[in-house]
Amino acid sequence: MNIFRLLGDLSHLLAIIILLLKIWRTRSCAGVSGKSQILFALVFTTRYLDLFTNFISMYNSAMKLIYLVCSYATVFLMYFKFKATYDSNHDTFRMEFLVVPVGGLAFLVNHDFTPLEILWTFSIYLEAVAILPQLFMISKTGEAETITSHYLFALGSYRALYIVNWVFRFYTEGFFDLIAIVAGCVQTILYCDFFYLYITKVLKGKQLTLPA
C-alpha cells in the first residue's frame, strides 16, 4: 500500500458516497445514468469474487464489501425506490455494445485462462468503459448538475491516482500488471475532456454545460 493507492481508493469511495448521498437527499436520480451504475455493479461483482478465494487484508476485504454494497444500493435506489425520477429517455446507450466486445477481449487477452481470471480481466476492461453511458447522457442533455460533476471528478481521479501508484510500484517493487495499466490509462483518458470542463467551469462556480 502506498499513498497514491490509498488516495485513489478514498477518491473512489468518495465518488460512490457522493452519488448515493445526492440520490438519497434529493430523493432523485435525475441526470444519473442507471446503465453506468449497472455496469459498475457488474464490474465489482465479477472482480471481487476473489473475496471467497483470496484473502489479502482486512482493509482490502472491507473496501471490496463496501464498494459492492454501495453499488447495489445505488442501482436499487435508481431502479426501484426513486424510479419515477430516473431519466431513462436520455439514458439510451446500449450496454451490450460495451459488455459483448469487452467479454470477447477478456477471453482473448488475459493472464490465465481460468474462470476467475477471465472474470477479473472482464471487470478491468469493463470498468475502463463503464462511464461511457454517463458521459453519453451528459452529451445528450448538454449539462450536468454540479454534484454529478463532483462525482465524476472523484471517480476519474481514482484511476489517475492508480496510474501514479503503478509507476511507484514498478520502481519500488518491480510490480506491474499490464492489463490493469493499459485499461487504467484508457479509463483515465476517457475522463480528460470532462476534467477540462470541470476545471474551467465547475471550479469557477459555474454549472457544467457543454459548448453548443
Binding site: 464498494y67 510490480f175 490493469a180
Partner: peptide, 10 residues
C-alpha cells in the same frame, strides 16, 4: 500454474 500478477489492488 498461474504466475500472473497477484490481484492485491481494488
Amino acid at each position: 500454474e498461474f504466475v500472473g500478477p497477484k490481484h492485491d489492488e481494488l
